[in-house]
Write a protein that binds this DNA or RNA. Structure first.
Lengths: 150, 150
DNA sequence: CGAGTATAGTTTCAGTTGCAACTATTCTCA
DNA sequence: TGAGAATAGTTGCAACTGAAACTATACTCG
């Protein structure tokens, strides 16, 4: 019987790595600001793109409608973000960071960068670039095989 | 205000990539055999290491006790695996694939390998080896910075 | 021995997740 | 125009999740 060594299997290896990394990073902001990973992602997008819709956030973060909707609801309750709706299209929300949210963003961004730096010391710049190129190629290939599975 | 581009941020990039990959792979066996990702991982370990304990499976798969316990319970109900307990230590389970589970394993392993191959065509062997080395280095570095976070 | 500690595994509980169905609004084109 | 399709977002539901408490068994050392 043909065997499979999980520890050498790419999807599994990436899953373990990414989950540990996300969880470790989350400890940096989770209890400090009482926000979850989806909530942080919403804040991260709004820090970069102010006044966008929930769907735009979903597109940027690859989170689905529902996850974004609930993250937005929690952030509104915590007053980390504000919401209006477009006059021209009242279906579309217009999200932006409230003062408290800007503080979270300003505090977390350097920590996140520090964390990334603390990990990527294992790469010299060229190797890191190659690793990133690998991620991009896999990402593209994922989309290519999509649907077309066996 | 210093900004963070999520789409260029390593933990985020890996998270998106790994989640998509796992989800895509799961479609290969999910409805075909009615098993979840944790259940497949248990089967994968038992295909490689017959007669091990639930904790051993947890160690190999990086899944916690609870996740393994529940996956095992479901696989038992579906008669994909069998369970005994050690005579010398009745706390320790002794898990092994039942006939149906062996079939699942025998069917899924080639599909999983095909899937991996379909993705890694984007790499020549050397590049793939370098990419894997990168994963290993990051994995090691994750453990190194552990606890020691800011 | 036997009280205290450690280990394997399960259960409870509270929170999260995603699909599908829903509301509300806007667009399309006969 | 206005009926039907499309889009933005929310909610109900059922399954999944992990932390903490629990059961049961085995080990340790005074």
């Amino acid at each position: 019987m043909s065997a499979l060594d999980l520890s050498q299997f790419l999807p599994y290896r990436l899953s373990v790595l990414a989950n540990k990394m996300s969880a470790q990073l989350a400890t940096v902001y989770a209890e400090r600001f009482n926000i979850s990973i989806p909530e942080w992602r919403v804040i991260a997008v709004l820090g970069q793109f102010d006044g966008v819709s929930a769907d735009f956030v979903g597109g940027k973060t690859e989170m689905d409608r529902v996850t974004v909707s609930r993250a937005v609801a929690k952030l509104l309750k915590k007053r980390y973000i504000k919401r209006r709706f477009q006059i021209s299209d009242r279906r579309c929300s217009v999200l932006s960071l409230a003062a408290a949210g800007k503080h979270v963003y300003a505090d977390v961004v350097p920590l996140a960068k520090q964390y990334e730096d603390a990990l990527t010391v294992v790469f010299d710049p060229t190797t890191f670039a190659q690793f990133n190129a690998g991620i991009d190629r896999l990402q593209a290939q994922l989309a290519a095989v999509e649907g077309d599975l066996f």
